[in-house]
Write a protein that binds this DNA or RNA. Sequence first.
DNA 1: CAACAGTTTAGAATTATTCTAAATACCTGA
DNA 2: TCAGGTATTTAGAATAATTCTAAACTGTTG
Lengths: 141, 141
Amino acid sequence: MRRKPKELTNETATARLRQAGLRPTRQRNELAKLLFRNGHRHLTAEALHGEAVAEGIKVSLATVYNTLHQFTQAGLLLQVVVDPTRSYFDTNTVYHQHFYHEDEGILTDIPGPDIAVDGLPTPPPGTEIKRVDVVVRVRKH
Amino acid sequence: MRRKPKELTNETATARLRQAGLRPTRQRNELAKLLFRNGHRHLTAEALHGEAVAEGIKVSLATVYNTLHQFTQAGLLLQVVVDPTRSYFDTNTVYHQHFYHEDEGILTDIPGPDIAVDGLPTPPPGTEIKRVDVVVRVRKH
DNA sequence: CAACAGTTTAGAATTATTCTAAATACCTGA
DNA sequence: TCAGGTATTTAGAATAATTCTAAACTGTTG
Ligand SMILES: [Mn+2]
Ligand SMILES: [Mn+2]
Ligand SMILES: [Zn+2]
Ligand SMILES: [Zn+2]
């Protein structure tokens, strides 16, 4: 049972960008390939930039930030807030929740059936719920 | 049914600091009085500093940061992470969850019986759950 | 009250992130 | 195919929250 390294071809990446309404540039293609090549990922802008540089992809940090935000707006990514010092982006855009490993600064998806949040009250008048985030903070013991 | 303005006396503040193992200085006393004078509060370092200055209390922003962290370590405050651009501190230290009003950048406690999170899996081996945070993000509609 | 450790502070430093505005790359219509 | 226009990229400056430094000050204790 080998995990197939679901490499994105340039064409697939381009198509995905187009249908998200984003012009497929070299940088966006490359970043999309890094982001979506294999399973779900949780990473920071710095981390993605480092990865790109390590693979010889020429892209500036500003573009990585721009791209992550554009992908987020387009629904290709989700931004996750767990640490006051940095932002994480999640390639898994279906509803799910997270473990945050405080020692290592690593986010992982909570597996299994979805977490249920019971006892949610009506939101304050004039407001609507946009999203419910659950973060389970764990530590090595 | 008037809400009594539960002002903290200097003595009460001092006592609270002592039993938290913190030396009761003028700045810590004043900040404690602002923080704990009336109901629960959710505020940023900048906000608390602004409030202090507005009331004529002489204290530097660095001290506000120091104090908020010391109070947090001592268990008098809880830090809440909901916005990647700033940290909130909560004077309500019993287990509870939050609404985050994204438009206004305001945190409020979720009232009523505690939220129940069902379906939490066992944490990854070698780790223990430190805290479960639920943030209900709301927006004006 | 002396003396020391703990605390405060101004200002510099750090870090993540955003902004600017100039150069470059896509895309479309001719 | 290509010119022209717009979107994108980028280096570097700017911003903003927060932390650090090291010198001055203050609470505590004997
Ligand atoms: Mn921050
Ligand atoms: Mn930040
Ligand atoms: Zn995830
Ligand atoms: Zn609260």
